[in-house]
Amino acid sequence: MNFISNFIQSSRIKSPWVMHFDCGSCNGCDIETLAVLTPVYDVERFGIINIGNPKHADVLLVTGTVNHRNKKVLKNLYDQMPKPRAVIAIGACGLTGGVMREAPNVVGGVDKVIPVDVYVPGCPAKPEAIIDGVVKALELFAAKS
């Protein structure tokens, strides 16, 4: 049984299926996130697949400023991801609310709503930085479980 649980443990790192949620960014970070999935960066090398469904996802990539309207959606998507799971906040807006943080309808960064494992700064964040963030999250995965 030890062998099997070891294999599952190591597979977790090798097969992160990511889901991407845009909380209302200017789409700069989104374009960079999607760029990660193109042949240039080819994240499938690491077993990363872009998935549209939280029930299949392991890693949630969040871009943009969280406001009162979309925080429920964000929370709901997070709740529907089976454990173990990780959250990566991307870009200045995702981290703190960015330039919009003082606006009356804004809650702030992603970590105001759900626990965030990795913060990827930048405006917009570079694709390399995003890949690096996912890899960091995977290390946390290994440590977590």
Partner: peptide, 12 residues
């Protein structure tokens, strides 16, 4: 790896 990972996830 995909299958093994899915096996290790929380049933939901």
């Amino acid at each position: 790896y995909d299958i093994a990972k899915l096996m290790g996830k929380e049933p939901m």
